[in-house]
C-alpha cells in the first residue's frame, strides 16, 4: 500500500464520507419525521378509529412490518414505475424513493409504540378528569397525551435509531449516502477493511449520539412511575 491509513483517512475517506454523511442526513431526517407523523396517525386510528379503519391500519402495519425493508425499497424505486394507472406512472428518484420507503416502514413500527402508549392509560385516568369537570378535549390534552407521550418516547426514539442504521439500505438504490460513498471509495482504493471499518465508526458515532440525545429527552420528561428503564 502506497499511503498509510492516516493519510488515506485524511485525504480521501473523511472528505468523501463527510459528503455522504450530509446525504444520509438528508435521507434520515425527513424519513424520521414522516415515520413519526404516520406512526401517530396510524396509532391513534388503531386505538380510537372506527372498526373498518382500525382493520385497515392493522393491515398496513402488518404488511410493512412483515416484509423486509429492502424489498420495500426495491418496490418503491424499481417496481413503482411499472404500475401505470390510466397511462400515468410515478417514477421516483432514488432519494425520494428511499424517504418514502423508510417513512412508510418506520411509521408502521412507530404506530405500535403510539398504540401501546395510548393503551397503557388506565380508563380511570380519563374518568377522574371528567369527574373534575374537564371536557374530553381538556382530559386528552392534560392527561392522555402527556402520559402516552412519556410511555411511547423510548420506543419511538429507538425506532429512529433503527432508522439511522437502516438508512444504509439507500445505497442499494444508488443513493450516495454514507454507505454508498464508502462502497465507491472502497472500489477505487481496494482498501476494504479500512474503508468499511471507518464507515462503521461513523454509524457508531451517529447511533451513540442519537441514543444519548434520546436519554437526555427521557430524563427531562421523567417523573416517578414513568422512569426510563436502565439498560
Amino acid at each position: 500500500m502506497s499511503t498509510t491509513y492516516l493519510e488515506f483517512l485524511r485525504a480521501e475517506l473523511v472528505p468523501g464520507l463527510m459528503e455522504g454523511l450530509w446525504t444520509s442526513i438528508v435521507v434520515i431526517v425527513p424519513s424520521a419525521a414522516l415515520g413519526v407523523l404516520i406512526g401517530v396517525l396510524a396509532g391513534v386510528l388503531r386505538v380510537y378509529g372506527p372498526r373498518p379503519v382500525q382493520r385497515l391500519t392493522e393491515a398496513y402495519v402488518s404488511l410493512f412490518r412483515g416484509t423486509p425493508l429492502v424489498v420495500q425499497v426495491f418496490f418503491w424505486y424499481f417496481a413503482l414505475p411499472y404500475i401505470s394507472l390510466g397511462g400515468h406512472s410515478i417514477v421516483l428518484d432514488a432519494i425520494p424513493a428511499s424517504i418514502l420507503a423508510f417513512g412508510l416502514c418506520s411509521g408502521a413500527y412507530q404506530s405500535e409504540y403510539i398504540r401501546g402508549g395510548l393503551n397503557s392509560i388506565k380508563r380511570g385516568q380519563i374518568r377522574a378528569a371528567l369527574a373534575l369537570g374537564m371536557t374530553t378535549r381538556q382530559a386528552v390534552q392534560s392527561v392522555v397525551l402527556p402520559q402516552a407521550f412519556r410511555r411511547a418516547l423510548p420506543g419511538c426514539g429507538n425506532e429512529i435509531i433503527y432508522l439511522i442504521k437502516y438508512s444504509s439500505l439507500a445505497s442499494i438504490i444508488t443513493v450516495g449516502e454514507l454507505t454508498g460513498t464508502a462502497t465507491t471509495i472502497a472500489k477505487n482504493s481496494w482498501r476494504n477493511i479500512e474503508v468499511f471499518c471507518t464507515l462503521g465508526v461513523y454509524y457508531l458515532t451517529l447511533v451513540t449520539l442519537a441514543t444519548w440525545l434520546l436519554h437526555l429527552a427521557e430524563d427531562a420528561m421523567s417523573v416517578p412511575g414513568f422512569e426510563r428503564h436502565k439498560s
Binding site: 442504521k165 437502516y166 444504509s168 454507505t179 472502497a186 476494504n192 477493511i193 471499518c197 464507515l199 462503521g200
Partner: peptide, 23 residues
Amino acid sequence: VWLFRGIPILVQMYIFYFGLLSW
C-alpha cells in the same frame, strides 16, 4: 453489545465479507 447494535447489518456484511474474511 454496543458495537454490534451500533453498526448497520449492511455495513457489517461489507466489513466481514469484503474485509475481514477475505483477508
